[in-house]
């Protein structure tokens, strides 16, 4: 974990209000693992503004990539940043990221919207190929899937309005796969809106597979100091007892194992 004034070396719009930005930050990039994130201090917001958290979409050759969606004043301000500008980045943050499954296991990656960002980094680190299930409201929310295809992954697209891929939720496509492959060893990795994560947690139990879920909570510090981002979990301790604990998503997560999250009603 460190602070760096990182130079923007690439910044381009994708579609649908999503943008890709790349920073030169060799030490943070070298330390980054899939599933981890960074806290960005947006230089054209006022100096009193909090940092904004973004998943690491790529970290290669000293370059850190973020895929972001413009949703509010911070991400809109970020859109105006020009190549050459320096941005203070804190990272990599989070516990050790997504645990990589063994080579005999088929990885199933499930992403919604900007949730594909950490999954691309993960796909590039896994030696084996798997399946990417990606969902969005419309075709505009389906991003960087060609990057997965380039490295030989099977990509299954779903949109709510049917503008591209299968019409419906990404979980329907996942269900179909799990039903068709009852005996395949598979592990799931998911990042996206909370209802999607909740549905995948339920599938993990139903199909007796492990899922790793990346939670998206509002964060102030990003290092575990403020207790602003907590999540209640149920864990089994060494003696086999189920214990309820309150963890910090920013520091103890943001990746949580299926079956541990106590979802709010």
């Amino acid at each position: 974990m460190q602070l760096d004034d990182a130079e923007i070396i690439f910044h381009e719009p994708l579609k649908g209000g999503y943008r890709l930005i790349k920073f030169k930050t060799p030490e943070i990039a070298a330390a980054s693992k899939p599933g981890q994130y960074v806290q960005v201090r947006i230089p054209n917001l006022e100096a009193t503004a909090l940092r904004r958290p973004f998943s690491i979409c790529g970290a290669e050759d000293g370059v850190l990539t973020i895929l972001y969606k413009q949703v509010g004043r911070g991400t809109f301000a970020m859109g105006d940043l020009q190549v050459g500008k320096k941005v203070n980045i804190l990272g990599p943050l989070g516990d050790c990221g997504f645990p990589l499954c063994d080579s005999a296991t088929t990885p199933l990656l499930i992403g919604g919207g900007f949730g594909v960002a950490p999954l691309l980094f993960l796909a590039k680190q896994l030696p084996q190929k798997g399946v990417l299930f990606v969902g969005g409201r419309t075709a505009d929310d389906i991003l960087i899937t060609e990057e997965f295809e380039k490295i030989g992954w099977d990509v299954q697209l779903c949109t709510n309005d049917g503008s591209v891929g299968t019409k419906g939720f990404v979980t329907a496509a996942l269900d179909a796969w799990l039903e068709a492959h009852p005996d395949t060893k598979a592990e799931m990795y998911a990042c996206g809106p909370e209802p999607m994560l909740k549905a995948i947690d339920e599938r993990a139990a139903r199909f007796n597979r492990v899922a790793w879920l990346s939670l998206d909570h509002r964060m102030a510090c990003g290092v575990g100091a403020c207790l602003g981002c907590i999540q209640k979990v149920r864990l089994t301790d060494e003696a086999g007892n189920v214990v309820e604990k309150t963890l910090r998503v920013c520091k103890d997560g943001p990746i949580f194992k299926s079956g541990t999250i106590v979802w709010e009603a």
């Binding site: 006022e46 909570h217 102030a220 403020c226 602003g228 907590i230």
Partner: peptide, 19 residues
């Protein structure tokens, strides 16, 4: 145990928290 989420928000010139 503290309060339920959201526990804080950003406001002009700072933040409001109820951890």
């Amino acid at each position: 145990p503290g309060n339920p989420l959201p526990r804080f928000c950003e406001v002009p010139g700072g933040m409001i928290n109820a951890i």
